[in-house]
Structure formats: structure tokens, C-alpha cells
């Protein structure tokens, strides 16, 4: 147990990354608010970034990990921007941000 909480041992980082991914997935599963779903995606992606970073550090390929994270951040921003614009458009038409009411969209 004490081995895990030693920062020089990177197990702590993997542990935190796994917890962040779990929190993100829990947040997505437990909320009907579409904005909250997006925040859950963001928190989970922070966990993924932490895992990539730690793997790069452990394998002494930190620059490779940095390149992957930079590309990931770019894609993340685009995904969030498009999703938020969809939310605003949905709100203008239906006046709510409830994910369950999106089923009215079915053809």
C-alpha cells in the first residue's frame, strides 16, 4: 500500500489516471444534463492525458507523449466546440438541456 503512495514510483500516476477516468464515466452515467455529460467527457480525457504522460515518462519517451497530448488537446477543443453549439441550437428549439428529451428527435 505505501509503495503506491510514493510519488517517485509512477504507480500513483496510473492510479490517479484510472480514478479520473472512473469519475468521468460516473459523471456521464449519473446525469441527464447534456452540459454535465460534456464535463464528464472532459474529466475522463484528463485521466487519459495523465496516463499517456505517465507512460511517456516511464518509457523515457516524454517528447512523444507531449506530441500526442498536443494533438489530443486540439481534437478535444473541436469536439467541445461542436457539442456546445449543438446544445445551444437544441436549447433554442426545445428550451431544455435534458438528454432524455432528445429522443423526440427520432424520425
Amino acid at each position: 500500500m505505501t509503495e503506491i503512495f510514493n510519488p517517485s514510483n509512477l504507480v500513483l500516476n496510473y492510479f490517479v489516471a484510472t480514478l479520473l477516468i472512473f469519475m468521468g464515466i460516473y459523471g456521464m452515467a449519473s446525469s441527464r444534463n447534456i452540459l454535465k455529460l460534456l464535463i464528464g467527457i472532459e474529466v475522463a480525457s484528463k485521466g487519459c492525458m495523465m496516463a499517456i504522460l505517465t507512460a511517456g515518462y516511464a518509457l523515457q519517451k516524454i517528447n512523444y507523449a507531449q506530441a500526442l497530448i498536443i494533438l489530443m488537446v486540439g481534437v478535444e477543443v473541436i469536439v467541445i466546440a461542436v457539442a456546445l453549439s449543438l446544445i445551444i441550437k437544441n436549447y433554442i428549439q426545445r428550451h431544455n438541456v435534458d438528454a432524455w428529451k432528445l429522443k423526440k428527435l427520432k424520425g
Binding site: 505517465t54 486540439g74 478535444e76 467541445i80
Partner: peptide, 29 residues
């Protein structure tokens, strides 16, 4: 963890831009 470039991107884009996007959406909704 010796990743300054990734840190700068995370700080400017994720902590800055995405927060602004979220805050402006919350204010519109």
C-alpha cells in the same frame, strides 16, 4: 514530469479556451 509543451497547451487551451466556451454556453442557456 518534464513535459512543458504539453503543460502550456493544457494551461492555455483546456484551462482557458474550454472554460470560456463552457461559461458562455451556461450564460446563454
Amino acid at each position: 514530469l518534464n513535459a512543458p509543451w504539453a503543460g502550456v497547451f493544457e494551461l492555455s487551451v483546456c484551462a482557458g479556451l474550454i472554460t470560456v466556451l463552457f461559461a458562455s454556453t451556461v450564460s446563454m442557456v
